[in-house]
Design a binder for these strands. Structure first.
Lengths: 266, 266
DNA sequence: GAGTGGATTTCGCAT
DNA sequence: ATGCGAAGTCCACTC
């Protein structure tokens, strides 16, 4: 075990001691956690004030800042990575100012009481992987178009047309053009209208018929009717199932690779 | 000064000690902060895995959960308020499982090393107020329609039409119908197309001319041309300016109130 | 409970 | 740099 001390904790520090810890953390690009009584002001894209109360402040290695109240998933105030800090005392308060330049935004946190300050030096090289995103659904359709319908031949994806980008574009078994709009969750009006615009924008480019297919796990209440009116199809498609298909594809690729290279997978 | 101890900190605890702290915090609905080496698995709307690394776990009074890496504004994994916890040891690891029921989602955090665990009991009754939101812009237009154009008479707001809700709806100085679409930041293609849909959906309901006005601080590159094609107007409107107008309105209301009640404001 | 749209959205990718 | 759309988005509000 190494003898490095990844964590320093200072309980019930004076404002001066807390200021010292804050400065060490910021200049050393460490993680800082402070719990105490503070007020917060923000000016930038909008403005906000937060009256005095007990909260947790976190400043990370990349200088991003979070102020968390005792409840709620979201921080009440924050600053994204890449801002500069000014720290000091104003009267008996510890003041931390985080300034971002583009757009110009300033957060000021004033602590009149600090319960603890902690400086952490953490190492995190672990890989993060997420499955069942909309991109996974798109890739699954491209690898295995039959999950939409038999005979579908994808031509391109992320095709640019006037109103935006078509998720998947191809030809069906009868030679008709097909536009597929993918949603990873229940598709609402907006999705149907977007698909309709794509279909409309493609019609002038071809004398073939153009079909629109909305692929999502579910459609919202009134949207069935809207799809019928707009002459669009719906294909139920589960993002989890798509993730499975991709996993199978990856597994097969791996097997082929190891077969080619005459090794066996661990 | 009160003698309550709002913060308990446990440095370099054993896994058993950490487990005890975690259970105290969760059962007592306190805030828990743990720093240590962990891995995280998530299954629910999607799935994710996060390999071993040093992170900070925070569980709040309302049972929301955050896992923060040393960098980045966003948590790498999380659980919104209202989930249930199972805690225990699996081998030599401290395991915390947070289960949400609707939708069904499970996060599992396994710590094999804990640098510190802290249990906090924070009180925060401070009021938070935010200015210069899109709603502020809407209210400013309703209070002072001349910031859009002279002679404008707002009729309703949040008016339901087929594709969605019109931000502000009224009549201009020539008696034409006016639909206003508000964006608090640079308006893109989507905003223009949305406004166009609103205008189209209103045309059949009246034999008056229907004008569409896009009100935002700026418009994106190609959108000027798109607006011209769609015969829509653009009115530059700064959210900060709108917030000022509202502040003035509030000040005037206050003044009137104190005049009526024969008191003077503090 | 579902649907709809805003957000100091953030983030990532492509132009 | 700007534009554009996804997100385990979250959240508040309406129906």
């Amino acid at each position: 075990m190494s003898d490095r001390r990844p964590v320093l904790v200072c309980e019930n520090p004076s404002i001066d001691e807390a200021l010292e810890a804050v400065r060490m953390a910021i200049s050393g690009r460490k993680i800082l956690i402070v719990a105490g009584n503070c007020s917060v002001d923000y000016h930038g894209r909008a403005s906000s004030t937060l009256e005095s109360g007990e909260r947790i402040l976190m400043i990370k290695e990349d200088s991003s800042l979070l102020v968390h109240r005792p409840k709620g998933y979201e921080p009440v105030n924050w600053q994204p990575p890449g801002c500069l800090y000014q720290t000091g005392k104003k009267g008996d308060a510890l003041v931390i100012r985080a300034v971002r330049s583009k757009p110009h935004e300033v957060i000021t946190v004033s602590f009149d009481r600090v319960y603890f300050a902690s400086v952490l030096s953490l190492t995190d090289r672990g890989e993060f992987s997420l499955h069942a995103s909309e991109e996974d659904m798109q890739r699954a359709i491209l690898f295995q178009p039959s999950i939409i319908e038999e005979g579908l031949k994808p031509i391109t994806y992320e095709k640019k047309v006037e109103p935006g980008f078509i998720d998947v574009y191809g030809i069906d078994k009868d030679g008709k053009m097909v536009v597929i709009e993918i949603k990873r969750k229940t598709a609402g009006r907006e999705a149907a209208l977007q698909l309709a615009r794509y279909v409309e924008s493609l019609k002038p480019t071809s004398n073939r018929e153009v079909r629109g297919i909305l692929a999502s796990p579910q459609i919202a209440k009134g949207v069935q009717k809207l799809l019928a009116t707009l002459r669009l199809d719906f294909k139920p498609l589960d993002p989890r199932r798509c993730a499975e298909i991709l996993r199978d594809v990856e597994t097969r690729k791996l097997a082929e690779f190891f077969q080619r290279t005459n090794r066996s997978p661990t």
